[in-house]
Design a protein around this nucleic acid. Structure first.
Length: 756
DNA sequence: CTTGCAATGACTGAT
DNA sequence: TCATTGCAAG
């Protein structure tokens, strides 16, 4: 029991209060995970059967880590019986178990966001709607939030408020899209991410026996990051806890950052109303960060209106002030941050893994990647395009999906003509039309062309038949050979392997390697099967849609700088944190400026970012940045001003006055900012006026025979000497002006006067 | 049906 | 900038 001695009094109370509802309000860095872990260990030590515990975490990684720690205390064999994971993965498993009750096959496919959007796209097209009015992303968001509020397509249509709202926004036929989408997913034996929660609710609503079973199985329920649960998740938990009331939710309203996914901050604010006998514990001591960071974060979050009252404090050292860095462009920001990491690492002898670069949007990673690569600093990126979302991986997985569940429409459309077998768009459209007509899946139309004629020329029909035969032959193997063997058979005989092998471009080689990596992963999976059992490909496919990069961390990634979005950084901590791109319209995001609640969420996001830091936080912004290829100017984020000035140290590497040696060095490495900015300007101008007009005649004509060494005069920079020229006739000149130094000028704009 | 090129529009965030 | 889409030609 000595692990309990490491807890502070509040933590200990939260751990020991095992019976009845409780809520733990855990400030950032207050040892929340520890409480959860020890609480579970404590339960088990007190005789609770691990089978009776349900622990819901925010990421699979968090679940895995927690399970590992619990295993250290109570032993592996006990720990593995706890039901622990994300809402999605835990309930996907339960849904597979009872899928027949919902009319789904047990190996139903899980559609990821891409699949959902692609299906919506085809539906919008089929309904002959304009995809500019009905943007797939927007439509998806609308459907998603309906599902997260447990509104079925039928209920959606019947809800006059919603329909009126859609009509007002010029999308009166949204309900039709939702209806078609719902139907198509069902026909394809597919659930999207939201369905995993929605259908769980349906299952428990319509099948009292199932509900009863899980209510009694999960006698003790723990929910992490409760502030980020949505209504659908909330209701699942509420139903399951309805018999024993042994529910413990842990969260921090100040860290609620997922409202776009339907998360409802009310869930945590209203917990007390739902359970009147609820006991609340507040963890307010921060063990992670310096006083400066904790207090700066507090000064930020106090600007928000709605919050549960609490005071996060720490007994750690004051630490350094938070540095604020201004740069001129996003590229310079990358260089400055990379340089700073390099120097800190050298001066303080720390690891690469002690650093994180956190940004608001995935698109910002580029400039940091480039700068880090130049300095030979190893880094890893989370999010963005994950391994499982890469095209080649999705292609091969689509074959696997189709093998496990041939009704899977998105998988079928993806690979029926990849590699090319002469089954084109028009043929596929005919199949879809027929499938809609006969109300069957695409696969059925393909597999039984006589029963469901689709008016397809016999040549194409033969090709389709060959495809069907191939898939069927894989299906025969499905429960005969192990996952790896079948995966290899499919990779080879489908022609994917050859297609990629033949592509000798660097990208092609890397795609081939990715496929090999996937196969290696499946091999590993096959080998985990216990004695006398076989791991089948369908078993592998079960959670593959729910996996993310963070879930399988590689050994060689251990000592690298982390680059990720702030959203992805939730729950993590790093000694040195760089929060970058602190600019208006970027962070806070432009989309969040319209309402108070959205702005408050951005502020919470900033709070999350800042509280990831243990010893040192650095903020940076650029005064101009590229967006879609052209330069836009930007203002520093309001969040910088919102931090009490006493915690900040404004370092300004591009203007003189009180700068340190380090900063001067930095500036040298970075290059002359002025020059940089100017060439950026040129690029912008080039874009704005694409038509290259001839320079004017008359006084300007002599510019055509400008030579290196000529003396010229500029209206602003004064006299100067040409030291370089580009183009014939010359269009661009580098001129040395004694007053301002070297300048690159576009002749058609600079209006130079030639003196000699 | 496929190929190649020009035009277009996208950037919040993620299970 | 980059990836996807539409269109014309083979």
């Amino acid at each position: 029991m000595n692990y309990l001695e490491t807890l502070n009094p509040q933590q200990l109370e939260a751990v020991k209060h095992t019976e009845g509802p409780s809520m733990v309000i855990a400030g950032a860095g207050s040892g929340k995970t520890r409480v959860l872990t020890y609480r579970i260990a404590y339960l088990i030590e007190r005789g609770v059967d691990p089978f009776n515990i349900l622990a819901l975490t925010f990421t699979n990684k968090a679940a895995k880590e927690m399970k590992g720690r619990i295993a250290e205390i109570i032993g592996q064999s006990e720990a593995k019986n706890i039901s622990m994971g994300t809402f999605h993965s835990v309930f996907a498993r339960i849904l597979r178990h009872h899928s027949d009750k919902l009319g789904y096959p047990s190996n139903f496919t899980i559609y990821d966001t891409q699949d959902s959007r692609s299906l919506l796209k085809t539906i919008i097209k089929e309904l002959k709607l304009d995809d500019k009015t009905y943007k797939p992303n927007l439509v998806h968001g609308r459907i998603s939030s309906a599902k997260n509020n447990l509104i079925s397509a039928a209920a959606y249509e019947a809800n006059t408020d919603i329909v009126a709202e859609d009509r007002m926004s010029g999308k009166p036929r949204l309900f039709e899209i939702y209806k078609a989408y719902e139907k198509r997913c069902f026909k394809a034996g597919a659930m999207d991410f939201d369905d995993l929660l929605y259908k769980t609710n349906v299952l428990m609503r319509d099948h009292a026996d199932v509900l009863h079973f899980y209510q009694h199985k999960f006698r003790y329920i723990l929910v992490d990051e409760y502030q980020d649960t949505n209504y659908s998740q909330y209701l699942i938990v509420k139903k399951l806890a309805d018999v024993f009331h042994n529910i413990c939710v842990v969260g921090d309203d100040a860290q609620s950052i997922y409202s776009f996914r339907g998360a409802n901050i009310e869930n945590i604010l209203n917990f007390k109303t739902d359970y009147s006998d609820c006991v609340t514990f507040k963890l307010e001591q921060n063990y992670r960060s310096t006083k400066t960071i904790v207090n700066a974060a507090n000064s930020i979050i106090s600007k928000n209106k709605d919050q549960i009252e609490k005071t996060v404090w720490t007994s750690n050292d004051d630490g350094n002030k938070i540095k604020v860095i201004r740069t001129l462009t996003d590229n310079e920001e990358g260089k400055v941050v990379a340089n700073m990491i390099y120097e800190t690492k050298m001066n303080e002898q720390v690891n690469h893994s002690d650093f994180a670069i956190l940004y608001r949007t995935n698109a910002q990673s580029r400039s940091f990647e480039e700068a880090l690569r130049k300095l030979n600093l190893p880094y890893k990126i989370y999010g963005g395009l994950s391994f499982y979302q890469r095209k080649e991986i999705k292609d091969l997985l689509a074959y696997f999906r189709l093998t496990a569940n041939p009704q899977d429409e998105e998988a079928l459309k993806r690979v029926i003509n990849y590699p090319k077998r002469g089954i084109g768009k028009t043929s596929i459209e005919k199949v879809i039309v027929a499938a809609n007509l006969y109300e069957v899946s695409l696969w059925e139309v393909l597999a039984e062309p006589n029963k469901y004629p689709a008016n397809i020329p016999s040549g194409t029909l033969n090709k389709m038949n060959a495809f069907v035969t191939a898939i069927k032959s894989y299906r025969v193997e499905l429960e005969k050979v192990d996952a790896y063997e079948l995966a290899q058979t499919i990779a080879k005989s489908s022609g994917i392997l050859k297609e990629l092998y033949d592509d000798k471009s660097p990208e092609g080689v890397s795609r081939y390697e990715n496929i090999q990596a996937l196969l290696a992963g499946i091999k590993e999976f096959s080998e985990t099967a216990s004695e006398g059992e076989t791991a089948f490909l369908s078993d592998f496919m079960v959670d593959v849609a729910l996996l993310t990069d963070a879930d399988d961390e590689k050994e060689e990634d251990l000592d690298k700088i982390t680059l990720m979005t702030i959203h992805a950084s939730k729950g993590l901590e790093f000694p040195y944190v760089n929060i970058v791109g602190l600019e208006e319209n970027l962070f806070p995001s432009q989309m969040a400026l319209s309402s108070r609640t959205e702005l408050e969420e951005e502020r919470r996001l900033f709070y999350v970012a800042l509280t990831r830091a243990e010893t040192k936080a650095t903020l940076s912004y650029a005064t101009s940045r590229y967006k879609w290829g052209n330069l836009i100017t930007s203002e520093p984020s309001r969040f910088i001003e919102e931090i009490d000035a006493e915690f900040l140290e404004v370092a300004n590497p591009s203007r003189g006055g009180g700068r340190s040696l380090n900063q001067v060095n930095l500036e040298k490495k970075v290059g002359v900012p002025g020059k940089k900015l100017f060439s950026d300007k040129e690029r912008k101008l080039k874009r704005v006026t694409p038509s290259d007009k001839q320079p004017k005649t008359g006084a300007q004509a002599s510019l055509l025979d400008l030579k290196v060494g000529y003396n010229v005069k500029h209206e602003k920079f004064g006299k100067g000497k040409v030291i370089g020229l580009e183009g014939t006739p010359p269009s661009k000149a580098t001129v040395f002006f004694p007053k301002v130094g070297n300048k690159q000028l576009l002749l058609k704009f600079a209006r130079l006067e030639v003196l000699s």
